[in-house]
Simulated scan of single mutants.
Amino acid sequence: MRFMVIVKATKDSEAGIPPDAEMLEAMGKFNEELVKAGVMLAGEGLQASSKGARVRFLGDERTVIDGPFAETKELIAGFWLWQVRSKEEAIEWVKRCPAPFRTECEIEIRQVYEIEDFGPDVPKETLEREERLRAQLTNQK
């Protein structure tokens, strides 16, 4: 099972205040543990929403909204993509994580859809396309 592990933003992360050297070291060690355990597939920190944009869809219309975005508790400061056996295993890994910020923060865990999750009605062509795309992604690494 794959899980997206989402580090929620704080006022400091949105203000562009980077983690200190101690936090970078602690997170680096945690990431090493994840890699050695074969759990981590990807992971990155994200810059403040002031450097980002959103695209709102309404039918054929596309509206670009430049950051910053107001509600920090709904913003993402970073993420991991993990391969684990269960949600419970993902939770146990998150509990071992160093607190990403010096203030109260939250990490969200969300399971990633696999093509099989869409049931037996997925067209054969769609399954084949998914397999080709996954193979291409693997070959790009």
Results as ranks from 00 to 15, higher is better:
I109G: 01
N31V: 08
A15C: 06
K95Q: 12
A15M: 07
E22V: 13
V55F: 01
A37P: 00
I76S: 04
I91V: 15
D60N: 09
R54Q: 04
F101G: 11
L133E: 14
M23N: 03
M27A: 08
A48V: 01
M40S: 07
L58H: 07
L58N: 09
L58V: 04
G16P: 07
V7G: 03
R110F: 06
L58I: 02
C97K: 00
Q136W: 15
T126M: 12
M40N: 06
A53M: 13
A70T: 09
M4I: 07
E108L: 12
A26D: 02
E88Y: 06
N139L: 13
L75C: 00
V5I: 13
T103C: 11
D66V: 02
G16Q: 08
T72F: 07
E74K: 01
I65T: 08
W80P: 06
Q136R: 14
V5Y: 01
P19E: 04
K11W: 00
E74R: 01
T138E: 13
W93C: 00
A77P: 08
S49D: 01
F69S: 00
V35C: 01
F69P: 01
R110V: 05
K141H: 08
E88Q: 15
G28W: 09
G78E: 09
L81A: 03
P100S: 05
E104C: 04
E131W: 06
D60S: 07
E131K: 15
V35S: 05
D117E: 10
E116R: 11
P19G: 07
C105R: 06
D12Y: 06
D117Y: 11
R134Q: 11
L75D: 00
V35K: 09
W80H: 15
V64T: 15
A135I: 01
P68C: 05
C105P: 06
P100D: 03
I109A: 01
S86W: 13
F118N: 12
I6D: 02
V84S: 02
T126K: 07
E61T: 15
N139W: 06
Q111T: 10
M27C: 04
Q140A: 15
K8T: 02
E25W: 07
R132Q: 15
P18G: 07
K141M: 13
A70F: 08
E14M: 10
K73H: 12
K8I: 02
M40R: 03
E89C: 05
K11M: 00
S13C: 12
F79N: 02
F101W: 13
W93Q: 00
G28Y: 08
N139R: 15
T63W: 03
R129S: 11
I91F: 02
M1C: 05
S13M: 08
T103I: 08
E116G: 14
P123C: 09
L24Y: 11
E106P: 02
R110I: 05
L75T: 00
L46M: 13
D12H: 09
E22S: 14
A21V: 15
E88F: 04
P123T: 08
T72V: 14
T10K: 01
E71I: 02
R2E: 11
E61R: 15
N139H: 09
V122R: 10
Y113P: 06
A42H: 10
L133Q: 11
P18I: 06
P123G: 07
Q83V: 04
Q47S: 10
E104G: 14
L127H: 03
E61P: 02
C105I: 03
C105L: 06
R129D: 14
A99W: 09
K141A: 09
R102N: 10
E92P: 00
G43T: 01
R62G: 05
D117N: 14
G45N: 09
